[in-house]
């Protein structure tokens, strides 16, 4: 008899049930809650590793807290990481061919729409342009999902909310989010947290000691000063957390920074050296 060591959920039934760690930087929680109450779709923009995904998880957990008390069914979180080959039917669903005919299966978006929950489309502009056809009617007053192949229109569950994210930094100008899409969302900007907030985040997430966390936050700040001067993106909070974890596992701080931050940031040897000088200044 094999023991099941993992948790399996149907995609629309995945609920964030323990509180994720999230440290608010500004009023983003209030904004989200207000928008959620009105079911106004939300756009999270900001560079990679600034906590967008974590924020959605946290909010998904948070909006469920009232329901826990009242015993209402919990709202799920459906996350779709978009990539350049993601088509509309990947989201909506498709017919599967089977020996004795065909069978329709719903895509993740359809499931979220039917079941009611937060559908989070991460890095949405990476997806193919035909996905916008789906997003638009869902993201305005209509709240409808058209399933062309079935000839159906589904009205979204009252608890359904669309959240999308995008990173204005590294996509080129041609791949910008269309205005007609942008203007259907409330936008919450994410950026790297200030040093005095990032320190505690790193400390909490990585479990490293207070001083190391402070130093990592300082390093993050200094490296981000170089964005646009050789670096396209700064070191994300996520990378800093990883570094903290390595240090906590006994890797020498300078070495941990080198492998977790410097080499990941850029392939340009000169810039690597400069960043390394910053590292050696901060860490003994």
């Amino acid at each position: 008899m094999t023991e099941q060591t993992y948790q399996r959920h149907s995609i629309e039934e995945y609920v964030v049930d323990s509180e994720p760690f999230y440290l608010p930087v500004a009023d983003e929680i209030d904004i989200f809650e207000a928008a959620y109450a009105e079911r106004v779709p939300i756009l999270l923009k900001g560079p990679t590793g600034t906590g967008k995904t974590r924020f959605v998880e946290y909010m998904s957990w948070r909006v469920n807290q009232d329901r826990v008390k009242t015993g209402n069914p919990l709202s799920s979180l459906v996350t779709v990481a978009c990539h350049e080959d993601l088509t509309a039917s990947d989201l909506v669903g498709r017919y599967l061919l089977e020996p004795d005919g065909t069978r329709w299966i719903d895509g993740p978006l359809t499931r979220a729409v039917k079941h009611g929950g937060i559908c989070y489309l991460d890095e949405v502009i990476e997806a193919r342009k035909d996905t916008t056809v789906l997003i638009h009617p869902l993201a305005d007053h209509r709240r409808l999902l058209h399933i062309e192949k079935l000839g159906e229109v589904i009205e979204a569950h009252p608890n359904f909310l669309m959240v999308i994210s995008y990173n204005p930094g590294y996509q080129n100008a041609l791949k910008d989010l269309k205005h007609s899409t942008r203007q259907r969302f409330v936008a919450i900007e994410f950026d790297f947290p200030p040093r005095d907030l990032e320190g505690p985040i790193i400390e909490h997430e990585s479990g490293c000691n207070h001083e190391t966390a402070q130093q990592l936050a300082l390093l993050g700040e200094k490296i981000r000063n170089l964005i646009g001067q050789g670096l396209q993106e700064g070191a994300s909070t996520r990378l800093l957390v990883y570094t903290g974890k390595l240090i906590e596992r006994g890797i020498a701080p300078r070495r941990a920074c080198e492998v977790a931050i410097v080499w990941g940031l850029t392939d340009d040897h000169e810039i690597q050296k400069s960043v390394m000088e910053v590292v050696t200044s901060i860490f003994e």
């Binding site: 200094k222 490296i223 000063n225 170089l226 001067q229 050296k273 400069s274 910053v278 200044s281």
Partner: peptide, 15 residues
């Protein structure tokens, strides 16, 4: 110059 220049930029936060 390049190496330390970038280092200086990082520390100062200005160009």
């Amino acid at each position: 110059r390049g190496l330390l220049g970038m280092y200086a930029n990082a520390l100062a936060g200005t160009e």
